[in-house]
Amino acid sequence: MKAHTATNLPAWEAKGLLRHTPPESVPLTFRLSSLGARFGAQMLDILITYAGVLILAIALTWVGIFSWDGLMAFYALATFFMRIPYYVLSELVWNGRTLGKRILGVRVISLDGRRLTPHQIVARNLMKEVEVFLPMATLFGAASMTWWLALVLLAWMGGTLLVPVFSKLNQRLGDMIAGTVVVETPKPQLLPDLSTQSAARGYEFRPEHLGIYGRFELQTLETILRDPPKNPEMRKRVSDVAQTIRRRIGYDEEVQASREWDFLLEFYRQQREFLESRTLFGDTRENKFHTAAAKPPER
């Protein structure tokens, strides 16, 4: 269980992330699936399987190749196969994804960083019977129960339902036994490099200008720059950012309103170059409080 060491990121950025170490030993970051997505995937799977069996049964009745007897036997087998075998087979074939999980973009991965083994898939889905189907079945049969039995069952159901809410990696009991975790399917999307975009050069920032901020501020600026202003309100906000940065770093030239965007782009480029080369020299600046930890170099 050493596979998921804490992320190197600060706590507010690392929330809901899982550092996963594959055999190449370069940690990968997965985002844990939200409980809503998992619940939705489960509901979708139930809907798909029941609807599928129902449609098939209706079609068979309509075709009429089976007697009533045969239909009942078929129904019994179908309801059996749409429970555990469906989940096991689909997760085996699609590497940790059932149809519902595919639709909602979540999947199961093994916590040890290796491939998902058939044993893990079977184990986590066998427990599903106790955690998902049994509470559902008892829910429908609850009317005919004595109140204390209903109460005990309610407590048990609540308990199993709350396990994923409180467990650290949102694991349900089956996940814990199998050593698996449900994550969002990563979606790679390559955005253009902002440092190659600078339209107008002409701003010279000296080391004392660039020594103020750190990685966090740089990447916040990146987020701002990825979203060009479209209305006056947003332009006002960009202008605020540009003027605040100008004041904070003590840049002595005035920046006109029309050139604020270029100023930010250029500042981003030079700030990034500066911080990256500082990092190469072993001087990592996490955020603007780096001066409190170590005095910035003179030059």
Binding site: P22, T29, L194, S195
Partner: peptide, 21 residues
Amino acid sequence: AISMDRALLSYLDALCARAYL
């Protein structure tokens, strides 16, 4: 180790994760 471009880092992270799977 060398880049502070968040777009690049998150892209590579997601790409590698997907390829790993």
